[in-house]
Structure formats: C-alpha cells, structure tokens
C-alpha cells in the first residue's frame, strides 16, 4: 500500500545560535493506509515535535513532508490552506479528549463535519451513525461532563473520523484510561485503520498497548533509534 504519511530527511530545530536546540534530525518515516504505527521515546526525544510537524502546525527546516499525496509546505502553503488540509485529511485524538464542553456528544462530532461545509442535519445524522459504530450511540445526547473517560475518548475518536480522514494522529490517547478501556480504544483505532484504510500514528508512553501496533518506532534525541513489529 502507498504511504499516506511520508517524511523524508525531516529536521527541525528551535532557537538561534548558541541557544539553538535540534529537536529532530534526519527523520524518515512512512505510515501506509490501514497501518497503526506507534511512536515512543523518553521526554525530549522529539515525539511532540514530530506530531506537530505531521499535524502541519510546525514547518520543517529540512526534508519533505507528504500527506495524502500532497507535499506540504513546499510551494508556500498559507495558514488557511493548512487548516483546510487538516479539516479534510487529518483526524485528531487527544490525551484528554478535548471535547467542547458546551456541545453534546452528537454535536461535538457533527461540528467537525459542519466545518467542512456539511449541512447540520446531515452532519448530525452521520454523527449518530458514527457514535453507533463506536458503540456509544446511547450516549449521543450526553454533555462531555456527563461522560466517563472511556466514553469521552470514543466520542473524540468519532469526531476524528467525522470527515473520513486519510490520516489519524493520536496524542497519548490511552494515557487517561485504565488498562481495559485502553485496549478498547486501541482495538477501535485498529478497526478504523483497517475498515477506512486510514494511516494511524499514535504517540504513546503506554507500554500496555505496545502490542497493538503494527510497527513501533522509537525516538531518542530527535533521531529514530529503532523500529520493531510487536505482532
């Protein structure tokens, strides 16, 4: 399968002169459709910087970043273009679900679609279907404050899937969950990757879920230290 996320020789540093810190050097990595790749490493290894680069929040100093067959940054991408790319092609899952507290579960999911110009009624229908697919349909009208951690994270996954993205980026999605719920979330991500042919890149410290990745990439001091296939 062709890679949906492709990084070639990516480097990123912060600061100037003596104070410059090289966060990433010579990163070459790809994630294919249907693949779930884990990214692990100690604090300061460059995981967050790498995730921000793939999320098109940071611009690399060197190298080529290709997302869903589009080469990003080269050719001067405007902020609005990058946001449009994120809306269209990338789904995000956060450590603490980041649901909007003033919208119920359905509207949290529907919002992502309305940002992509889907009419509200249609977006709500699709949101309910997605919540059913993730087996949380009975909590569709609940506000985030009334959802358990696992339920909220499943709603967040539904929001990430709302626009049928090619790429799903997850930042410590199981960090706030117990072991059982963490396994459920990982199973969902694997299912989504397979059924929707999405590339899933997960930053994690959680060794309980390492076995659920197709590949596990280790970072240290801004470089790829190694790669393993847990399966």
């Amino acid at each position: 399968m062709s890679p949906l996320v492709e990084l070639q020789g990516i480097a990123k540093g912060f600061g100037e002169g003596e104070a410059r810190v090289q966060a990433l050097s010579d990163i070459t990595l790809s994630v294919a459709a249907g693949e779930v790749v884990g990214l692990r490493g100690p604090s300061g290894s460059g995981k967050s910087t790498l995730l921000n680069l793939v999320a098109c929040i940071l611009e690399p100093d060197e190298g080529v970043l290709r997302l869903a067959d589009e080469t990003v940054w080269q050719g001067r991408w405007a902020k609005a273009d990058l946001r449009a790319l994120r809306r269209r092609a990338i789904g995000f899952i956060f450590q603490f679900h980041n649901l909007l507290p003033f919208l119920d579960a359905t509207d949290n999911v529907a919002l992502a679609m309305t940002l992509n110009d889907v009419p509200l009624a249609k977006a709500r229908d699709r949101a309910r279907a997605l919540l059913d697919y993730l087996q949380i349909g009975k909590r569709a009208g609940a506000m985030p404050a009334k959802l358990s951690g696992g339920e909220a994270q499943r709603v967040a996954i539904a929001r990430a899937l709302a626009n049928q993205p090619h790429i799903i980026l997850a930042d410590e999605p199981t960090a706030a969950l117990d072991s059982e719920r963490a396994q459920v979330v990982m199973d969902l991500l694997r299912r989504v990757a397979r059924e929707q042919a999405a590339a899933v890149l997960v930053v994690t410290h959680d060794d309980k879920i390492f076995s659920r990745f197709d590949r596990l990439v280790s970072l240290r001091d801004g470089r790829i230290e190694g790669e393993m296939r847990p399966g």
Binding site: A55, I57, A80, R83, A84, L85, R86, R87, R88, F92, F94, N98, L100, P101, A112, L115, N116, R159
Partner: peptide, 16 residues
C-alpha cells in the same frame, strides 16, 4: 483557550 486551540487544530477557520 483549550477549546479554541482544539477548534484551530481540527481546522476551524479564523472566522469561526
């Protein structure tokens, strides 16, 4: 702040 950051990350335009 966190909700606004999330909206920006999931692609909400500045107008929103």
């Amino acid at each position: 702040m966190r909700e606004i950051a999330t909206l920006k990350l999931i692609g909400a335009p500045d107008a929103t």
